[in-house]
Write a protein that binds this DNA or RNA. Structure first.
Lengths: 145, 145
DNA sequence: ATAAACATTGGACCATAGTCAAAGGTCAAG
DNA sequence: CTTGACCTTTGACTATGGTCCAATGTTTAT
């Protein structure tokens, strides 16, 4: 007898059973065959599929983006440029998030630098800066995925 | 008659009415006085408080962190070091997120570089990398906020 | 045979930060 | 006095990525 129960599959892929079923609901893996007793039986290939999902997730792809990648992977008409385009969109997205965080970091560092850390909070320049009048702040936006 | 209705307050602070009520439920602003007809009446100071919240949010503080900052702000026993400490924790947090994203960015750039973008996806090096055997990957962890 | 380990379903729940809708009460203007 | 703008409450819903539970059924090991 071949095929994996959901427990074996999850273990091989390093996920929990709940996560595997969650991915099934989300359409990231096909609904597997069932035994007579209604147990899910997965082909070995699904281990690779789940590992693919894990790796893509580590690279910052969302589950719906991963779903697209998986679709492309199994679409004979898909081209490398489809994949590359998505990868580059994600690169732009990540760069944008880094930029936003860097801006935030600079602002926080400025605030921290201005505070000596001694005395009562009532005269804290950080809190004063947050309480101050509303400044225009560049909404250099964030069109990420 | 003094005081602001929730609509005026929200407008002055640049938020929606729903968001103001949401912040009230979360304990970020005090429950305001009510008129005889049960309308919320806010003191002018609450405009500043909401703007404080907005700015802190722009700096990457979560609502619960902002709640702490607001508490400190109005605690006569709080010291500047309390605020500074939280600011520096947030700085560490943001630096860590930037580091994670930078690692992801490098990996994505590597993948993208390896793909010429021509031909069918079936031979795409990006998909192959994601499908490949499971590598050890440094979980240099992430003790963020 | 019986208990432990595994599987099934449906649905609730976590955190985050809101957003929206329904059904009603109030206030100001015309 | 009616209309429209404003306010009230409760509670559901959004998106993200799961996690956990109960009640029940199956398989496996002793």
């Amino acid at each position: 007898m071949h095929g994996l129960t959901i427990g074996k599959l999850a273990k091989k892929a390093g996920l929990t059973i709940d996560t595997v079923r969650f991915y099934e609901r989300r359409g990231l893996i096909n609904e597997p065959a069932r035994t007579q007793s209604n147990y899910r039986m997965y082909p070995e290939e699904d281990v690779a599929r789940l590992i693919f999902i894990k790796k893509a997730k580590d690279l910052g792809f969302s589950l719906s983006e991963i779903k697209e990648l998986l679709f492309i992977q199994h679409d004979p008409d898909a081209s490398k440029s489809d994949v590359k385009e998505r990868t580059e969109a994600k690169i732009r997205d990540v760069r944008c998030r880094i930029k936003d965080l860097t801006r935030i970091l600079k602002a926080l560092e400025q605030l921290s630098k201005g505070c000596d850390g001694h005395g009562p909070a009532s005269a804290c320049p950080i809190l004063e800066a947050l309480s101050g009048p509303e400044e225009e702040h560049h909404h250099h936006n964030g069109g990420g995925s």
